[in-house]
């Protein structure tokens, strides 16, 4: 609402449809999470009554929630690491604009566009009988690798964009000052990728906290529930008709993602500011 022109060319109420959608599909469901988590809403009866923090205390007393949370956090951290290492490696490898590199980049981007369920089922079929999806310790890293494989193309793209925006005169100056290629890469170019790192780490970490599809399709949470992410647990609980308990769990996940998002982003942003 700064200038008269701004007001005339963009009437504020043009935003209303967008905000209405946002309200109905994002704000309301989130707000309702805070309501239904404290009720006894279930598939078994028609009435919904407030029950206070019963659902929370009951979930806290049951080890399953904490196990699912631990599995989810481990999964998210593994995905964040794998996805960024692969993405960064690919970006550096395919940085130069040769015809071969362009084709290769396209191919690495294909998994990003594929359906997550399709990716899960393909890997399930590929790994069947190898024992890779039957080990109670190593299956979680395996599904994290699959998740990272699917999304590494996107990380690559963002790192590529970061590499391309580094001013050439900076690199020239470094070379004139006698920096080796190794030195100028790690001391000049890598630090300038900080904004790309922030974006990639944050999206990989927080995106995989909400992971469901790939793991559900690959292992369904098995073996022995060692890959049962919180979302799979929520899905299972919801399917049993325990809607309030499932809502309480998604509330816990929502709060956890929010709690992790702020420090992660603040920390990474601070790194950017140093530049």
């Amino acid at each position: 609402m700064t200038t008269a022109i701004g007001r005339r060319t963009h009437p504020l109420w043009f935003l209303l449809p967008a905000y209405a959608l946002l309200l109905v599909f994002f704000v309301l469901p989130t707000a309702y999470q805070f309501v239904y988590a404290f009720t006894d809403w279930s598939g078994f009866k028609a009435s919904i009554n407030p029950v206070g923090v019963d659902n929370l205390t009951q979930l806290a007393s049951d080890g399953t929630l904490f196990r699912a949370l631990r599995i989810t956090v481990v999964y998210a951290v593994l995905v964040a690491i794998f996805q960024n290492v692969f993405g960064f490696g690919l970006a550096v490898l395919l940085e130069r604009d040769t015809a071969l590199n362009r084709i290769a980049r396209t191919f690495f981007l294909i998994p990003v566009l594929m359906s997550a369920l399709a990716v899960g089922y393909v890997f399930q079929a590929l790994l069947k009988g190898t024992g890779a999806l039957a080990d109670t310790t190593w299956t979680l890293p395996v599904v994290a690798l699959i998740h990272a494989w699917k999304w590494m193309g996107l990380a690559m793209l963002i790192y590529l964009a970061g590499l391309k925006t580094i001013p050439l005169d900076l690199l020239e100056a470094a070379r004139l000052d006698g920096a080796s290629r190794w030195h100028s890469f790690w001391r000049v170019r890598a630090p300038l990728l900080a904004p790309a790192v922030t974006f990639n780490v944050a999206t990989a970490l927080l995106g995989s906290m909400n992971g469901f599809d790939i793991v559900q399709a690959t292992t369904g949470g098995g073996p022995a529930r060692t890959t049962e992410l919180l979302n799979i647990f929520i899905y299972r609980t919801f399917g049993q008709g325990l809607f309030a308990q499932a809502t309480t769990m998604s509330l816990v996940l929502f709060l956890l993602v929010a709690l992790m998002a702020f420090p992660v982003i603040v920390l990474l942003r601070r790194r950017e500011e140093v530049l």
Partner: peptide
């Protein structure tokens, strides 16, 4: 048992 109690309670 834990899960049974949870489901049974939800069902009244």
């Amino acid at each position: 048992q834990k899960q049974f109690e949870q489901l049974a309670k939800a069902a009244g």
